[in-house]
């Protein structure tokens, strides 16, 4: 069965979609990614769609699902490199991918993920501080 490779890079998972997606492939990707997130306890998922020329409502939904499912497992999702024509079409279709972070390219996407995770860590530290106080 066709599968899209998922790369692990530190705390992040990296997916580059190089072919036009059909439904089965997209569903496989959703499954594989979520399994990987839970297995590796990844903190972020980066999906590069710069080579994808068509995103319809089904694939848009898959991207949204991946983001929501990852979030439940404490991982942020960023979709990078969407082509202008695809963005215009999605907006016209009425699909704005709420809840999915976006970035221009892989580099900026990585930066965004690092910031998000940094912020999350910061928030956790802030949260723990008062607990320490009560211990004293």
């Amino acid at each position: 069965m066709d599968r899209i490779p998922i790369l692990k890079m530190g705390p992040f998972l990296l997916v580059t979609i190089q072919v036009d997606l059909y439904d089965r492939l997209a569903l496989n990707l959703e499954n594989d990614l979520i399994t990987m997130v839970s297995k590796t306890e990844a903190k972020g998922v980066l999906i590069d769609i710069s080579a994808v020329s068509i995103v319809d409502s089904f694939m848009g939904r898959i991207l949204g699902n991946i983001a929501s499912m990852s979030r439940i497992m404490d991982a942020e999702t960023v979709v990078v490199g969407m082509q202008p024509a695809v963005a215009i079409t999605l907006v016209e279709l009425g699909l704005t991918l709420q809840g999915v972070h976006t970035a221009l390219n892989v580099e900026k996407g990585m930066e965004l993920l690092q910031n998000k995770i940094g912020l999350n860590l910061l928030n956790q530290e802030e949260y723990q501080e008062p607990a320490d106080d009560t211990d004293l």
């Binding site: 020329s53 068509i54 319809d56 202008p84 215009i88 079409t89």
Partner: peptide
């Protein structure tokens, strides 16, 4: 144009689904 192509193909894709 590319944008119009993308719109048409996306619409076709929705209907075929």
């Amino acid at each position: 144009s590319l944008v119009n192509q993308t719109k048409l193909i996306t619409a076709a894709s929705e209907l075929v689904r």
